[in-house]
Computed example of a mutant assay.
Amino acid sequence: MRGLAEYIMRGRREATLAVAIAAAIPLLFWFSAAALALVILRRGLSEALPILVWGMLPALVWSFLGDLTPLLVMLGSSALAVVLRQHNDWLRVLLLAVPLGVVFAVALLMALGEPLQALAAGFREMLPELLGQMGVQLDEAARAALLARLDELMIPVLGGVMGAMHMLMVLFSLMIARSWQARLYNPGGFRQEFHQLRLTPLASIGLLIVVVLAPQWPQLAMLSPVASVPLLVAGFALLHGVVGIKNLGTGWLIGSYVLFVLFIRFAYPLIVFLAFVDSLFDFRSRMRPPSGSRGDDDSNSQG
C-alpha cells in the first residue's frame, strides 16, 4: 500500500489516473475515495478539485446505472477529509458524519424506493411463518397491530441502515487515506490518533438517546442506525487502544473482528455500549501506566 500511496502523491496526473480508474472498476470505489482523500489531506481541496472532477465521471456513470455508492462515498470522503485537514479532530469528523449519513439515507430511499417497497412486502408475507417458527402465537388483532407497526418502521429503518453502511465506507476510506499519509509523512501518527479516539460524554449520551428513542417515531427511525456509527467506530478505537496498551499483538484484533462479523447481532450493540461507557470513564487512561505505554507509541507496530 505504501507504494500505491507514493504513486498517488507523485503528481496530479498520477493521482487522477488512480482515482478515475479505481472509480470505474466495480468494488474499487473505496480505493478511489481513499486516494482522493489522501490528496486533500496532504495538499488541500484546491489541488484535489481537478482530480475530483475526473473521478466523478465514472461515479456518475455508475449512478445512471443505478449504483449511487461510488458517488456518495467519493463525495463523503472528500468532505470529511477537508474537515480533518482543517481541524485535525476525529471527534468532529465522526459527529459530522451523522448528518452526512442522514443525507445518504434520504438519497438512497429516493433512488431505491420501489425495490425497498418490494423487500418490505416480501418480509410482511413471510412474517406469519417466521412467527410460527419462533413459537410466537398472536391473535388477529395483535398480528394486525404488529404488521401496521412494521409497515411504519421498515422502510425508514432500511434507509437508515443503508445510510449507516455508506457512512462506514466513507470513514473506512478516510482512515485508509490517513494511514497512507502517516506512513509517508508521519510514521505512527494515525495509529496514535485512532488509539486515542474517544467520544465526549455529551456526544455519546446524545447519540445513544437517538439510537434508543428514534425508532419510537417512524419519521425519525432512520436516525437510529446512523447515530450508532460514531459509537461503533469509537468502540473499535477502544479495542485497538487496549490492545496497543497491553501489547497483545494483531492476532487479538483479527480474532475480535472475526467474532464481530460472525456474531454481529450481539457484538454490534455490545461495542456501542462499551464506547458509551468508555466516554464516561476513559478506560484507556486508567489502564495506561503512569509513565505511558511504550507499545502505544511504537510507530512500527500495527493496529
Rank of each mutant, 00 (worst) to 15 (best):
F276H: 11
R10W: 00
V258G: 02
R286E: 09
F273N: 00
L27V: 10
S77G: 14
Y7I: 08
L52N: 02
L223F: 13
Q219A: 14
A107R: 06
Q86A: 14
W252F: 14
T69C: 01
G206A: 12
R92V: 08
A227E: 11
A111S: 10
L238N: 06
V61Q: 03
D298N: 08
G206W: 06
Y185I: 06
Q219N: 08
G303L: 09
Y7L: 11
S293A: 14
V82G: 04
Q86D: 13
M165Y: 15
A97V: 03
R85V: 06
A15H: 02
L60H: 02
L119Q: 15
S32C: 03
S179H: 11
V242Q: 13
P156I: 01
I51S: 11
F190H: 04
A237R: 13
L223M: 12
A145L: 05
L238K: 13
R143I: 03
P201M: 05
I25H: 10
M126H: 07
S301N: 10
E129T: 07
L130M: 14
L71M: 09
K246P: 01
A23C: 03
L71N: 07
V106A: 09
Y185H: 14
H240I: 07
M175G: 15
Q117R: 15
A237F: 03
L220K: 09
I271K: 02
L108H: 04
S299I: 00
A144K: 04
I205M: 12
V82N: 04
R149V: 04
V243D: 10
A227F: 08
F263T: 10
L95W: 08
F276R: 07
L17C: 05
I155N: 02
M165K: 11
A120E: 02
G189N: 05
L131S: 02
L112D: 12
M74G: 08
V102R: 03
Q196R: 15
V61Y: 01
V82I: 12
V233T: 04
S299P: 05
Y185V: 12
P70G: 09
A164V: 08
S256E: 01
R191H: 09
L75K: 01
R198M: 06
L131E: 04
R198N: 05
P218R: 07
L270M: 11
L17Q: 10
N300Y: 14
E129V: 03
L280I: 08
L116V: 11
A18E: 01
D296V: 07
V93W: 01
R178K: 12
L248V: 04
A48W: 14
S46T: 14
G113D: 14
A33T: 07
G241S: 10
V233F: 12
M110V: 14
P26G: 03
S299K: 11
I254P: 00
S256I: 06
F236T: 09
A105H: 01
